[in-house]
Simulated scan of single mutants.
Amino acid sequence: MQVAIQGVKGAFHEVAARNYFGNDIDILPMLHFSDLAESVKNGDCDYGIMAVENTISGTIHANLNLIREHKLVVCGEEYLRIRQNLVAKKGTKIEDLNEVRSHYMAINQSRKFFKQHPNIQLIESTDTALSMREIKENNLSDIGAIGSLLAADYYDLEVLAESIETNRKNYTRFLILRNKEVWKKKGRNKASMALILDNHQGSLAEILSIISSHDIDLSKIESLPLLGEPWHYQFYLDVLFDDKTKYQSMINEITTKLDRVDILGEYTSGNQSYSKIHHHDN
């Protein structure tokens, strides 16, 4: 089984993929999220895994748009506790470092740690694991990187400090994606959808009332303006349901009151208490 990830080998996307699918998978690295979406759409891989939300940084709206625009299907989710680690070439000490490179999010999540080391310059890069790979390939002895322990192992680097993130309650939600043409629904108790409301007063309140009246749990809602249509919005919703009949009835009712509804996927929810649960849908 081949799974497309964003980033190079050892990126947190790979850690999440292996948590979800197990280790018996082949990783297809993609540097950009748009490339990841294309690879899933074109059938270049069996699945894709894409970060869409972080408890510190919030929702990655552009990725939700990619899923909708490429007509990909969400068939599962994985919640990953993000542990940032400072690594360098073996034999290097923290006091030897002049700079540390990583993705801007990893840097932002670790700034408190680096206040203890004001001599180290923090440099933003494209990817956490890519920064580690460059240290290995270029034999850099005065440069460190921030990222996963998996990447440190891949690139034979020394871990100088573990779990340097400021906030320990740092989780990322990843969606498992597949091409719509080859995906088949199985177990499901959660759905992600995109709604475009008709532009009249109270339309959102009406939709939310309908969802509630069918005993559906609205677990997330985000709004985004529609380009070129001032004061017209698109909403991304996640809902949880126990009764599939009530869920389908809710969908049927809100569809008549919307300009458009796209069901991004119906799937088994990940464990939102963040302890490990195995939840394979397919």
Results as ranks from 00 to 15, higher is better:
77 E>P: 00
120 I>L: 07
68 R>T: 10
96 D>L: 02
134 E>G: 01
105 M>H: 09
136 K>G: 01
91 G>M: 10
90 K>F: 00
75 C>W: 01
75 C>I: 15
120 I>M: 12
75 C>K: 07
74 V>R: 01
102 S>H: 12
98 N>R: 12
104 Y>Q: 11
91 G>E: 10
89 K>R: 14
92 T>E: 06
72 L>K: 03
91 G>T: 04
131 S>T: 10
75 C>G: 00
121 Q>R: 15
142 D>T: 12
115 K>E: 14
90 K>W: 02
74 V>G: 03
62 A>D: 15
80 L>Y: 04
105 M>S: 05
99 E>N: 12
108 N>E: 13
129 A>K: 03
68 R>S: 14
67 I>R: 06
121 Q>W: 00
93 K>Q: 15
139 N>A: 08
114 F>D: 08
100 V>R: 04
110 S>I: 05
111 R>V: 15
91 G>H: 10
67 I>Q: 03
122 L>S: 10
124 E>M: 11
125 S>T: 15
65 N>D: 15
61 H>N: 06
120 I>A: 09
81 R>N: 14
121 Q>V: 15
97 L>N: 00
81 R>W: 00
62 A>E: 15
82 I>V: 15
76 G>Y: 05
68 R>Y: 03
108 N>W: 05
130 L>N: 10
94 I>K: 11
113 F>K: 08
70 H>T: 05
64 L>A: 03
66 L>Y: 14
76 G>L: 04
93 K>F: 13
113 F>C: 07
84 Q>C: 09
